[in-house]
Simulated assay, not measured.
Amino acid sequence: MIRVDIAGKHFGDVQVLGRVRFDIASGETVALVGPSGIGKSTVLRIVAGIDTRFQGHVERPEAMAIVFQEPTLLAWRSARDNLLLTQPGLTPEGADRALAKVGLEGRGEAFPLQLSLGQQRRLSLARAFAGKPELLIMDEPFVSLDPEMAEQMMGLTETLIAEARPATLFVTHATAEAERLATRILHLEGRPATLRA
């Protein structure tokens, strides 16, 4: 169980988040939606432990993976090494199986810049799931993809989540994405932003 209890978050003198409190159970997918600039990514950074300067408390497991808006891959390392370097204990064979699971079979030697944006997103997913996360955090993972590629990536993400069953928190501005992937949708609104009652 992931427990999030944010009492407030300030950037200087500006309070951007008010009370934001929710839990996520294992196997549950929670979508966080709201207008652009409302603070959705700030909530994700707090939940992930990247931003620790807030009032409140977050309980989360150590086994965690983050999928950012951009793939954030190591451009100077092969696809296989992008998995091996970030997942201790993963074998080269395990990395190749993880790549095959996301449709990148035989691309282990390719470097990220030799892959299309869609393939880079697949590699980012492979890296996230290779570590068997108990908590998966995704920040607008389908942004800037054309509709056909976004549909493929949503289908792949659905499959991976169903197999691994992590507690999942993802931010999206697209209601259709939230309705498709999430078991529960949270709405962030107001100034400072809080969850809609």
Rank of each mutant, 00 (worst) to 15 (best):
T194G: 15
D146G: 01
T159V: 06
T86M: 15
E28F: 07
L73D: 05
R196E: 13
V171P: 12
R60K: 11
T29A: 14
L44Y: 09
G8I: 00
P133N: 14
T183K: 15
R19N: 01
T42L: 01
G49A: 06
T157D: 09
V16G: 01
S124E: 10
K101Y: 00
P147M: 13
L115W: 01
D139T: 07
E59A: 14
D23V: 00
R127E: 07
I161G: 11
A128V: 12
R53L: 10
E189Y: 08
I6Y: 02
L44G: 05
H187N: 13
E62W: 03
P88T: 06
P133C: 13
G118D: 04
V47A: 05
P71Q: 10
G49D: 05
A182E: 12
A63K: 15
P112G: 05
A178H: 08
A176H: 13
I50R: 00
T183R: 14
H10R: 15
L113T: 09
G27I: 06
G8E: 09
L90Y: 08
R122N: 01
I161L: 11
P141H: 09
H173R: 14
A79V: 09
A65M: 06
A65V: 07
T175P: 00
V4Q: 02
G118R: 00
F11R: 13
G8T: 00
R21G: 07
A79I: 07
S26G: 13
E151M: 04
Q55S: 14
A75Y: 09
M1E: 11
A75I: 03
A176F: 05
F170K: 10
F11H: 14
M154W: 00
D51N: 12
L115Q: 01
V16S: 06
F22R: 00
A193L: 05
A197H: 05
K101D: 15
S41A: 08
G118T: 03
